[in-house]
Simulated scan of single mutants.
Amino acid sequence: MPALTEPLRARLQYTFNGQYTGTPEWVTDLEKGDDEGFFLPGSAVWAVHGAMSTIPAGVRALLVQALHPGALAGVHDHSRFREDPLGRLAGTIRWIYTVSYGSREAATHASNWVSRLHTKVVGTYDDRNGVTHDYAANDPELLSWVHMAFADSFLAAYLEWGHEPIPGGPDAYIREWATAGELMGVPNPPRSVAEMQSQLMDFDRRGVLERTARTDDVVKFIKRPPLFPALKVGYPVLFNGAVGTLQPRFRELLGLRAPHVGPIGIPTRAPAQAMLAGVGGVLGKRPVAEEHALARLDRIGWTAA
Score class of each variant (00 low, 15 high):
Thr119Gln: 15
Trp145Pro: 11
Trp113Lys: 15
Gly169Arg: 05
Trp95Met: 14
Leu86Ser: 13
Thr92Met: 09
Ala110His: 06
Leu155Ile: 00
Phe154Asp: 04
Gly169His: 07
Glu105Asp: 13
Leu155Val: 07
Asn129His: 14
Ile166Ser: 02
Thr108Gln: 12
Ser103Ile: 12
Leu143Cys: 08
Leu89Asp: 04
Ile174Lys: 06
Asp139Asn: 09
Trp145Met: 11
Thr92Lys: 04
Trp145Asn: 10
Arg128Asn: 07
Thr179Gln: 05
Asp134Gly: 13
Gly87Leu: 09
Leu155Asp: 04
Leu117Lys: 13
Ala136Glu: 04
His118Asn: 08
Leu155Trp: 01
Val114Gly: 09
His118Val: 13
Arg116Gly: 00
Glu105Ile: 09
Glu160Thr: 15
Val122Ile: 14
Gly168Glu: 09
Gly181Trp: 08
Trp113Glu: 13
Pro165Met: 04
Leu142Ala: 05
Leu117Arg: 14
Ile96Asn: 12
Ile93Asp: 00
Gly87Met: 02
Met148Asn: 11
Arg175Tyr: 03
Ala157Lys: 01
Trp95Thr: 14
Ala136Phe: 05
Ala137Cys: 09
Thr98Val: 13
Val131Gly: 00
Pro140Trp: 05
Ile93His: 10
Ala107Asp: 04
Tyr97Arg: 13
Trp113Thr: 14
Val99Arg: 05
Tyr135Asp: 09
Tyr101Asn: 05
Arg88Asp: 09
Ser100Tyr: 01
Val122Gly: 08
Ala157Tyr: 02
Ile93Cys: 00
Phe150Lys: 03
Ala107Gln: 12
Ser111Ala: 15
Glu164Met: 00
Leu155Tyr: 01
Asp139Ile: 06
Tyr125Pro: 15
Ala110Phe: 01
Tyr101Trp: 14
Ile93Ser: 08
